[in-house]
Design a protein around this nucleic acid. Structure first.
Lengths: 196, 196
DNA sequence: AGCATTAAATTGACAGCGTCAACATTGCAG
DNA sequence: CTGCAATGTTGACGCTGTCAATTTAATGCT
């Protein structure tokens, strides 16, 4: 793969640098100029590949959602029953958030996301479709399946998402082992999935 | 109520203006200079009352969490059984988020919050204590109450919080009535609470 | 091959932002 | 009445996103 331009595949380099920054310094530390600096380009270089900051953030979110969907699908594939698949997806959801906290928060920071971008829209549909599809599979042949599935999907999704968000923001510490909150978090998640 | 200084009760005016801005323009639209402008003060005036942007945001979040706790407690007081109280708290949680979206999101935007500020810490404890206390009340006399309560609290909290967040970010639209998503949202929440 | 066109990247500028230091004004305590 | 502390203002600094103008490289056409 030769360099298609005199600097290299700048677009990929920018996305990669942005991901590193956001997972290291958080969303507040992610700036167009900083990303450009990290790859050795001029401050306005990103403009050619992403129009503006919203563009960069949205494309990075698309990368994140695709990886997110991959993780959930892989986790589900390792299980046999629909219920086990769904629980595995829930665990993968939280594990992804803990593994890539900056990226995860960026993916759900609506204000800087342009959801009409095809790459982002498709990646989101893939990720959320994986989750809602798995919920629907647990209701096969259920009477009043439509209504029950809708509520079940909203419940499962809201639960794992809220848990991930609250966890990343250190809001659940009162409920967790003071000495090893992060390690305890997955044990608590298992208890939660067991109950409901 | 005379003006205690030559401009008035600037601290309260700034907080009030900040709340209006954040609910109108979202978090991105909330700036120190903009708030100062809205109350007719110089751009550095907020420095005297809140040290910096983190200070202003944290104090505003404290106001929000106190109001949040009030709403949940009022809702719970109108119900008789522990289970009804808990469900009422869940509804109040989501209703608050929908009624004051900017403020709600600001309250959970960890990066600009100084949780060591006494006002914020106390307000958060009050709000979350209301919720977890209500969960504990539904487990009175339960065998293995401690473990069950912990998981139940995390589950209830995560669910309503995730639902509120996903709702505010228009992420649940695929599950909601296309013509009136916000109106349908509370109906779906009731279905969710019924199931769980 | 040589030339024109397009894509990619740079430079310089602008306004808005948070923050700090220096200064001015007001209220209050002694 | 006088000095001090609290409260506000002004001006500056570096950072940011964004835009316009310009330069450089790659590609396509004849």
């Amino acid at each position: 793969m030769t360099k298609p331009y005199h600097h290299g595949d700048l677009r990929a380099a920018l996305l990669s640098a942005a991901e590193e920054i956001v997972n290291r310094d958080g969303i507040a530390g992610l700036t167009l100029r900083g990303v450009a600096r990290d790859v050795g380009a001029s401050h306005a270089a990103p403009k050619n590949h992403f129009d503006d900051l919203t563009g960069l953030v949205s494309e990075l979110a698309a990368v994140g959602f695709n990886r997110f969907a991959d993780r959930m699908q892989t986790a589900a594939a390792a299980q046999a029953s629909p219920t086990d698949k769904l629980n595995a997806i829930g665990r993968a959801y939280v594990e992804f958030a803990l593994a890539e906290p900056g990226l995860f928060q960026l993916m759900f920071r609506g204000e800087r996301l342009d959801k009409t971008r095809p790459a982002l829209r498709e990646a989101m549909e893939r990720a959320f479709g994986t989750l809602t599809g798995s919920v629907a599979a647990t209701h096969a042949g259920d009477p009043d399946a439509a209504r029950a599935t809708r509520a079940h999907a909203a419940r499962a999704w809201s639960m794992v998402h809220g848990y991930a968000i609250l966890l990343l923001d250190d809001r659940l510490n009162p409920l967790l082992d003071k000495d090893a909150p992060r390690a305890d978090a997955m044990a608590l998640l298992d208890d939660m999935l067991m109950q409901g």
